[in-house]
Nucleic acid binder design. Structure first.
Lengths: 185, 185
DNA sequence: ATCACCATGTAAGCTGTTACATGATTAA
DNA sequence: TTAATCATGTAACAGCTTACATGGTGAT
């Protein structure tokens, strides 16, 4: 089973959804840690149905095409529950920003500072996004979700996102300080 | 130009290297934020040479094959210097661990705790690695490298790695606390 | 009218991983 | 003698991105 399959099962374990809705959720909030486009989602749903991990029912929609609403099966729920406590492989590190920082020593200091400031703006925007999302969850749920509540994962990963952004922002600012300290000499 | 090309140029901007040596550096320290296997490195070096961004000289080695030592050209150094201050695209988020956490609410709490503890061990090992590497740089360099010194990038990215591990560890422990708080009820 | 959104699929292409292929030197 | 390290390549495959394809509904 592919990782994407478990991502989709993770969403369907909460509620039945169509491919289109799943695609939206793979942008956010699941996209905060695992992304997929619709061209990946539809074929993967077909594979999941083949293996009886999900069941699809055709709902005649208002549009030209029929809507297919998928729900997780007992088999699917079991597969997900088993996979979840499986040790996760180390994520392959791929950060183009850090790749640039590695060679920043040969760049023009002002251009370098501008690049980092752009990065800071992006982090601030992401943090604002996470803050809104967490607020929405706490409001909708009426407090912090317990660890066996379906909302727990979304909340816990948002907390992590916020912690990550705090760290990333602090480091970017430290880096800017280093560049400016050099410029003053 | 591919991202991998700039990664290799970033290493060659510091000193001439063979494909084999580059492959090792793509595991660490560059592998801390961008990885590549030898099967990617050799063809990419050929492409870089084609575009005259690097120059290769054949050094008869002790082994069965000739060693090819590459050095960056002036054209290559310019391309790298320009690219470095270019805005980096947002990295595609791909973290299987967070994907598991998202669905942790339906898992057995003890199995979940064990999985997270495994993750904590991995973070501790990585942090120890980073600490050793930073110590080595500071010792070899005799203090903190200035921002226009070739060692600056390696040092700055290690500082980031250490900050990241601190954040990740703190969040893993917070998550464990949540699970245990639930178990006590 | 034009745009955004709903809605589902296929195909081509690029990137990256794993496996195939070969073989010398040196240390345990 | 067995394994690790040095050393360089090609090929098959998997995963993901971008583009192609179609078309209705509702808001501006």
């Amino acid at each position: 089973m592919s990782t994407l399959g478990y991502a989709l099962l993770g969403l369907l374990a909460r509620e039945p959804l169509t491919g289109y809705q799943l695609t939206g959720l793979m942008r956010a909030p699941m996209g905060y840690f695992w992304t997929a486009s619709h061209s990946q989602v539809y074929p993967e749903l077909a594979r999941l149905q083949e293996r009886a991990l999900v069941a699809g029912e055709v709902v005649p929609g208002p549009g030209p095409r029929d809507n297919k609403r998928y729900r997780i099966t007992e088999t699917g729920r079991h597969a997900l529950r088993d996979w979840v406590v499986t040790p996760a492989p180390e994520p392959t590190a791929r950060d183009e920003f850090l790749l640039r920082v590695y060679s920043l020593w040969l760049a023009d200091p002002d251009a370098a500072a501008a690049m980092i400031e752009g990065r800071i703006e992006a982090h601030l925007a992401t943090r604002a996004d996470y803050r809104r999302s967490e607020k929405a969850i706490l409001a909708r749920h009426g407090g912090e979700p317990a660890s066996d509540h379906p909302d727990f994962g979304a909340w816990a990963t948002l907390r992590r996102g916020l912690s990550y952004e705090r760290h990333a922002l602090a480091w970017c600012r430290w880096l800017l300080d280093r560049l400016r300290a050099q410029a003053r000499r």
